[in-house]
């Protein structure tokens, strides 16, 4: 375990000088990923030969209608969905079981209700063999970062949905993951809280330097957050289009009314609309 830790530190240090290291090995390589589910109506192809790379430090959003398999792709990268066809490399090594260098934030916070905010965040480091003291120090740093100092000893059921999700993000970051996977983390929040959370995430991202893959069905959310948006289609899940978001950073939800933003959004919506129509006609005729 200590060997693994030290290599992580090294990789982190060496990646710092150049943020856009295009020549480097991608953080995530997904090639020809296919996932087939057995349902009571026979086999269903959830994900059909999906391939994409995510560069180290990049923020990629996957957008698509519900049921298009975007969450399945994310769970597979996390090592929670087995078996699958194709190959997935994270930081150069194939995924199998969940790995502590891959962090995950789910749509529901899934905080441990019997642990205080601090002990929830300290859980990961404790499980990786850190002492209680070290783990608490890590937790306290993260609590300060998410602005919940006063709630360090509170239990999750006393927090609002947005606060719970912030704790869930901090908990996922406590193991210093190289890759952070986020599965519609703000989907259950109201619109105002969601906008605040998006700004918070962008702020946080500047400090943690992790590679982020973020799944959402909200095209606005995707463009505000991402360096690159992957648009997926439903039944079977495929990647339809890749859209680079070259909007300046630092960004906030204020860019929602900029012309460049609107042009990007129009592109995305056209792809989604054409695909939606195709899917609708298909389901109508079958």
């Amino acid at each position: 375990m200590s060997g693994y830790r030290s290599t992580t530190k090294l990789a982190l240090a060496s990646s710092q000088p150049s943020v856009k290291a295009a020549s480097k090995q991608p953080a995530i390589q997904v090639s020809n990923l296919s996932i087939v589910f057995d349902t009571n109506r026979g086999q269903m192809i959830a994900v059909d030969r999906v391939s994409f790379d995510v560069a180290a430090g990049e923020f990629v959003c996957i957008v698509g209608p519900s049921g298009c398999g975007k969450s399945t792709v994310l769970n597979t990268i996390a090592g929670l969905e087995l078996p699958f066809e194709g190959e997935i490399l994270v930081e150069g090594s194939p995924v199998g079981n969940p790995r502590p260098d891959i962090g995950m934030v789910f749509q529901q916070p899934h905080l441990f209700p019997w642990k205080s905010v601090r002990r929830n965040i300290a859980h990961g480091p404790r499980m990786l063999g850190r002492s209680a003291k070290e783990a608490c120090a890590i937790a306290d740093d993260l609590i300060a970062m998410i602005g919940l100092k006063r709630f360090a000893d509170a239990y999750p059921n006393t927090l609002s949905g947005g606060m719970q999700q912030r704790v869930a993000i901090a908990r996922a970051l406590a193991n210093e993951p190289r890759v952070l996977l986020m599965d519609e983390p703000f989907g259950a929040l109201d619109a105002q809280t969601r906008a605040v959370m998006q700004d918070n995430l962008l702020e946080l991202r500047d400090r943690i330097k992790a590679t982020i893959v973020f799944v959402t069905h909200d095209i606005d959310e995707a463009i505000v957050l991402a360096d690159r948006v992957l648009i997926m289609s439903a039944g079977p899940g495929r990647i339809l289009r890749e859209v680079a978001v070259n909007l300046p950073r630092p960004r906030s939800s204020a860019i929602l009314i900029e012309p460049t933003y609107l042009a990007l959004k129009r592109d995305c919506l056209e792809v989604i609309r054409a695909e939606g129509l195709r899917a609708f006609n298909q389901s109508d005729s079958s």
């Binding site: 929670l80 995950m104 899934h110 499980m127 996922a172 406590a174 193991n175």
Partner: peptide, 8 residues
């Protein structure tokens, strides 16, 4: 699942 992702 959350616990698994945290290395439990």
């Amino acid at each position: 699942r959350a616990a698994l992702m945290l290395g439990t």
